[in-house]
Design a binder for these strands. Sequence first.
DNA 1: CACACTTCCTTCCTACGGCGAACGAATTAT
DNA 2: ATAATTCGTTCGCCGTAGGAAGGAAGTGTG
Lengths: 384, 384
Amino acid sequence: MTDVVTPPTSPVSRERSKEIKRLSVISTARQVRMLSRAELTELTGLSPATLTPLVRELIAEGYLIERGPGTSRTGRPRAMLEFNPRAELVAAVSLEPSRISCEIADSDGAVIAHRTVRLTGDIVDTICRFVPELAGDGLSALRGVAIAAPGVSSGGAVRLAPSVGLVEARPVGESVQQRLGVPVVVDNDVNLMAAGEHAAGAGSDVADLLLLHVADGIGAGLVLDGQVRRGAGGAAGEVGFLPLDPADRGHDGIGPFEARWSENAVAERMVALAPGRRPDSPVAALVELAATDERAAAYLDELLTAWARLIVSCVCVIDPGRVLLSGAAAQLDDAAVARLQTLVTAAAPSHTEVRRAVLGDRAVLHGAVSYALSAAAAAGLPTP
Amino acid sequence: MTDVVTPPTSPVSRERSKEIKRLSVISTARQVRMLSRAELTELTGLSPATLTPLVRELIAEGYLIERGPGTSRTGRPRAMLEFNPRAELVAAVSLEPSRISCEIADSDGAVIAHRTVRLTGDIVDTICRFVPELAGDGLSALRGVAIAAPGVSSGGAVRLAPSVGLVEARPVGESVQQRLGVPVVVDNDVNLMAAGEHAAGAGSDVADLLLLHVADGIGAGLVLDGQVRRGAGGAAGEVGFLPLDPADRGHDGIGPFEARWSENAVAERMVALAPGRRPDSPVAALVELAATDERAAAYLDELLTAWARLIVSCVCVIDPGRVLLSGAAAQLDDAAVARLQTLVTAAAPSHTEVRRAVLGDRAVLHGAVSYALSAAAAAGLPTP
DNA sequence: CACACTTCCTTCCTACGGCGAACGAATTAT
DNA sequence: ATAATTCGTTCGCCGTAGGAAGGAAGTGTG
């Protein structure tokens, strides 16, 4: 009857505050890996008296494992506690055209199980059968699922999604969430990569970054103040649409910039520069060729100039402080990256560091882990 | 001795949770203005038993005022409580070249006192003398101070700041904070405007927006997920530096885009189009002239096209969903705004609404109120 | 006009979590 | 051995949250 939309839950119910402490201890333990109760007192600010029963609880639940006594100069040695990454598992599902790949990882991002299958039948069905099967007896530790889809975003912008038969992102997420009973996040792959590099890669030391992913198209993932930002319609980072050259024209959901400067475009140019079969890694091939071929060198510089303008444009809008090159852009060698850095520094209004992303293919997985863990945390702790 | 950097305060001390409830009640009351305890139970989720003493406390402190019984169909009438905006005052200080203007406002943004003085001597001194003087006996209700400086940002980017003799933003904020004993926020005026429009203007219904402010330069303020985002170095929104046309060149801290398309540039062009004295509001003058003069109409369209490209660039990066035109850009008439909307829609990858900002000069004030209130809230509730 | 009824607010009381303090435990220094 | 030192635990007080019950203040109805 009274179907309250916002169940007017108390902002500070009693259990909530306990939950907060639990999470505080768990996240501290996750970072430090091996610590004693005394260290927990220092790091969390909780009193020893509060910690004793809490730690007991966490040991019982498998989050912490009691190890032998540690070292100490004098006094009673501290009983060490080890964080058990296996206590929290997440599933990262990656939708690709006609395939689904799934990985079960612990909270370190260590892959415990993975498999790839050809997509047959309903996506939701496949995922809901697949994940529990892979997780095995670790299913009870599953804390969240992150689904990466190319070019799709939570808002339902379905630019590239039809290629995987995904019409709308949200329903898939909700269906899976209902059937598996754990939080599910759906996001596009570039956002997940950005989250991954932020959590465990070349951006783990900063709160803001922009990941520029060059592939068939060009997209960016945006982390501001430690969070992936998707924009109002989930279309943040569609930098392939930047109108940097009035002469460029996009078409059919391809932006004007990416039409001219994506990996595809480079591949086509490479065929002209070095007749033969189309290279698998055109950017890497271009960098190599540029060392000996003047025309290639000129084109490389043209490419770097274009990418630099793209980066500068992003920097002017959001000032990420750090830009990570991903996908084909990560194939640039040191000299090319340095050249890009120089071009960016010359035109950007604020200090910006240009680096290669470091996680490569594993970025999506790490992002999924990070998403799923924070989704799990958010589920236990609804925003007040 | 043990000078702990992060005083390892407990994440959930006892007082904290009480503070959370207080804030929850206060913010609810601020929104609803006039409500009963029964409504508070519904809206906050707190039990009546918890509310009784809390409300009593708030009445004693002047946050709430008990009014007569309200209407009710049947049963005991609810005793109405009115939120007292005067219970929380904020000071908004605006630094301009050679002047300081200060306003004391209540939490509705209603100005209680204001004054402008010529800047003489030390900025910090002036502010610290000025604010208490204006606040008078309301000083005890002062919850925060927001200082707006042109072009300066929290990171210490001092592009335009030398004009007000401000070498570094942070020390000023900290000094004032120490001497006045309330939270102080320093930010650039465009960010404050964005916050103001978000809190009380044309963006109060959305969580994301971009405010494009055209004046001598061109800057943008960015609200994402309900918060003003400043970027890693505080230089987010420096869209005047966007390299949209390789031919444009910036100089001396002026970006390439704003060098050509700012209010200044329009003013110069207007002198050529309509010889005479330089108009005070060149954009308004241009719009007016364009109705009768073909060359002016052509230039107006050129200008709108340039601004549209600027907006589309921002949209591609962050997808704000709504763009507010401020400063000189707010002088466009409905037809021009519609034209801009059309141009943006044609090129942007996501749905974006273009509107005029509505607060005008008062935007900075409202932003300051919003900043100061949330700074006060944050001070009472350090991030766990 | 009395009575029931409804709704609102308050007071009483209990439960429970946080944390200070005292205490037992385990080791090194003397 | 004994003292010293550091760790971890148990005890018990305190304070807050919230359930339950009761008083308060109206409206409808016989």
